[in-house]
Structures are given as structure tokens and as C-alpha cells.
Simulated scan of single mutants.
Amino acid sequence: MTRKSHQSPPPDAPEDDAALFRDAIGPVRELPASELPPAKPRPKAAPRMAQRDEAEAMSEFRRAVTADALEAGDALAYRRDTVPPRTLQRLRRGEFSAQEELDLHWSDARQAEAMLREFLNHARQHGIGCVRIIHGKGLNGDSKHPVLKNLVDRMLRHRADVLAFASAPANQGGTGAVLVLLAAKR
């Protein structure tokens, strides 16, 4: 009996690694096909028409705001219908003395708006009838329109507790300040 330690393929058969592997492991059964991994979700549809309409509306709003915007030398003046015109004239001449003052110099628009709201609420709560708000003339800004002056004008016109306001006389700040008459506390 002869012992062979290693069985070699017949010399005429080519060595096929895959065939040798299949012979070595024996019969196999195929696994069922697995599901494909979930696909990446598609991006949501962008409402481009709505975004364009919104952008156009904002542009139109900005145009409307800047069309009525005050310039550096413009004087502020406003009175409610219930306030006599003579009262506004007296306010322009500085015949009312300001009991409190707020200086908005070096504030950005957001800070100035918050400070102005708080200041007017405080004045109203303490029964103050006339205040001076210094907004500056807006000569140092990048814009043609003074930002703080226009902000003060818009805010004062929309407050129910403001009866009238006018740019201060030259000796009290001129077009860089505004005198404001407030309604009495109820």
C-alpha cells in the first residue's frame, strides 16, 4: 500500500480555484434575496412661486417704506386728530418742557426699538406728559435715509399713547431730536 500525503490533480486537468472550493465545502443552498436598503428620501418640492411672490412683496414693501422715508434734514411733525393744531405749534417752538430724555445714539435699529418701547412705557406708567428722544441726524450712516429717525417716526405714529410729536427746536437738538406729548395714564 502506498501512502500519498498530498493528492494532486491529474496532470491534464487545469486547476480551477472555484471548483476546488466547491468540492471542499460540499453542497450549499442559496439564501433568499434580501431587500434593497431604503433609498434616500427625495427632497421636498420647493414652493418656488410662493417664494418669488414673497420676495416681490418684500421688495415692494421696502420700496414703499423708503419712498416715504425722511432724510437727514427733514423735520418730524405729527398730531392726532383730537389734538388742536395750536398744540403742535407750541411743541415745535419748545414751549413744553421734556421731563425725561432718551438718547439713541450708537444704537442699532433693533436695540433702539426695544429701548424706545421700554422708555415710552416707563414714561406712561409714571405719568410723564412730555419726553425728548434724541435719534441723531443720521449724517454718519451709510444710507441716504437716517435709520433711527425713520424708526422713531414710524413707531411714534403707531402708538396709541402718543398724542403729538415734532422735531425739537434748534437749542434742544433740532432735527436730531423729537419732543413727544404722551396721553395721560388711564
Rank of each mutant, 00 (worst) to 15 (best):
93 R>S: 05
93 R>F: 08
93 R>N: 05
93 R>W: 00
93 R>E: 01
93 R>V: 00
93 R>C: 03
93 R>I: 00
94 G>M: 06
95 E>M: 06
95 E>V: 02
95 E>F: 08
96 F>D: 04
96 F>G: 02
96 F>Y: 06
96 F>C: 01
97 S>H: 00
97 S>Y: 10
97 S>A: 08
97 S>Q: 11
98 A>C: 11
98 A>S: 13
98 A>P: 00
98 A>Y: 01
98 A>T: 02
99 Q>K: 13
99 Q>G: 14
99 Q>S: 15
99 Q>I: 04
99 Q>W: 10
99 Q>N: 10
101 E>R: 15
101 E>F: 09
102 L>T: 09
102 L>N: 01
102 L>G: 01
103 D>G: 14
103 D>W: 12
103 D>M: 13
104 L>Y: 02
104 L>W: 08
104 L>A: 05
104 L>E: 00
104 L>D: 07
105 H>F: 08
105 H>G: 05
105 H>Y: 04
106 W>L: 12
107 S>G: 09
107 S>V: 06
107 S>T: 10
107 S>W: 07
107 S>F: 13
108 D>V: 01
108 D>N: 15
108 D>E: 02
108 D>Q: 01
108 D>H: 09
108 D>A: 11
109 A>C: 12
109 A>G: 05
110 R>M: 12
110 R>E: 15
110 R>P: 00
110 R>S: 15
111 Q>V: 13
111 Q>W: 07
112 A>E: 02
112 A>N: 02
112 A>L: 10
112 A>Y: 07
112 A>P: 06
112 A>S: 05
113 E>M: 12
113 E>C: 10
114 A>Q: 07
114 A>S: 10
114 A>F: 02
115 M>H: 11
115 M>V: 08
116 L>C: 11
117 R>V: 08
117 R>D: 08
117 R>Q: 09
118 E>V: 09
118 E>P: 01
118 E>W: 04
118 E>M: 06
118 E>R: 12
119 F>N: 02
120 L>I: 11
120 L>F: 06
120 L>Y: 05
120 L>D: 05
120 L>R: 06
120 L>G: 03
121 N>Y: 06
121 N>M: 10
122 H>F: 14
122 H>W: 15
122 H>R: 15
122 H>D: 15
122 H>A: 14
122 H>P: 04
123 A>R: 03
123 A>C: 15
123 A>K: 09
124 R>M: 05
125 Q>P: 00
126 H>V: 04
126 H>T: 14
126 H>Y: 03
127 G>A: 03
127 G>D: 03
127 G>Y: 01
127 G>H: 02
127 G>R: 00
128 I>M: 00
128 I>T: 03
128 I>A: 01
128 I>Q: 02
128 I>S: 09
128 I>C: 01
128 I>E: 01
129 G>E: 11
129 G>N: 14
